[in-house]
């Protein structure tokens, strides 16, 4: 071995800085987006589902409630509108993290974990990627606001867009935390279905928390999504009655974004004596 070592050329290391946070996150985010638009079926799904939802829901609604006075119909429709947006966003956001399981099974994730990139960048890139797709869907839905009989100000629309982004982020990060330890999309599906529906039903999307009975009300107040739905309600219709002020709703939503991000970061950072992927 000595002979080999003495004649060997010396490795000329190029100076590479430790990768920062933004370039790797941006790169992982971009990959999500590129993968999305190269799969036409997914593009169609994201754009068409708010449309279809709108046609089915809106048509059914106006018809069923038309026997009463038109004002009540418009009012009810307006009540359900924020919850509907959240539902669309919820599904897309959480299921976008199915790609994490796919990345793991395809081996792509392995090279990401074995690279020197900071674990925050992995979470940020993946979560922002999923959240972007979910938010796009929410924003398309937002275009239908006038049809719902809701007429927010421009500032209200901008605020609503911000809330949609926040909700997309927190739910995608939640999906990330759930998906990370899993290696089967079926298992992910099962777990997500288990929590997604209660999360939405008890978020004030269907009925307001103050009309619910004691324990149900307690659950609804503990549900972080309640504050997202309410924040959206606040921004689209400042006159609407909500349990908490806009400030509190926004604060809780942002806090939940941070909590879910931290949870994702924690699961990714766990290095153990078991195989990582």
């Amino acid at each position: 071995m000595a002979t080999v070592a003495t004649t060997a050329p010396h490795h000329q290391a190029i100076r590479t800085a430790r990768p920062g946070l933004w370039i790797p996150s941006y790169s992982l985010w971009q990959r999500e987006i590129v993968r999305f638009y190269r799969q036409r079926a997914r593009v169609i799904g994201v754009i068409a589902s708010p449309l279809l939802f709108w046609i089915a829901f809106g048509a059914g609604f106006s018809h069923s409630f038309s026997s009463g006075n038109s004002g009540a119909s418009g009012h009810a429709f307006g009540y359900f509108f924020p919850g509907s947006i959240v539902m669309i966003v919820l599904f897309t956001a959480i299921f976008s993290m199915m790609s994490l399981i796919q990345d793991r099974n395809e081996g792509f994730l392995l090279t990401v974990i074995a690279s020197p990139v900071s674990r925050s960048a992995i979470v940020l890139g993946k979560v922002l990627g999923g959240a972007t797709l979910a938010a796009i869907q929410g924003l398309i839905f937002l275009c239908f606001t006038p049809l719902a009989g809701v007429h927010p100000s421009f500032a209200g629309l901008v605020l609503a867009a911000v809330v949609i982004l926040l909700v997309s982020f927190e739910i995608t990060a939640l999906g990330f935390t759930i998906a990370w330890p899993m290696d089967s999309t079926q298992a992910f599906h099962a777990i997500v279905n288990l929590i997604l529906l209660p999360l939405w039903l008890l978020s004030g999307a269907l009925f307001p928390a103050d009309k619910a009975s004691g324990w149900l009300r307690a659950i609804m107040l503990a549900n972080p999504l309640t504050y997202g739905v309410d924040a959206l309600r606040n921004s689209l219709d400042p006159a609407a009655h909500t349990d908490h002020s806009l400030a509190i709703n926004l604060a809780v939503t942002i806090a939940f974004c941070l909590v879910t991000f931290a949870a994702s970061w924690a699961v990714v950072n766990r290095r153990t004596q078991k195989p990582a992927a």
Binding site: T16, G20, Y26, T111, P116, V117
Partner: peptide, 8 residues
Amino acid sequence: RHAGHLYG
């Protein structure tokens, strides 16, 4: 390109 980004 993605791989390069992950390595700084």
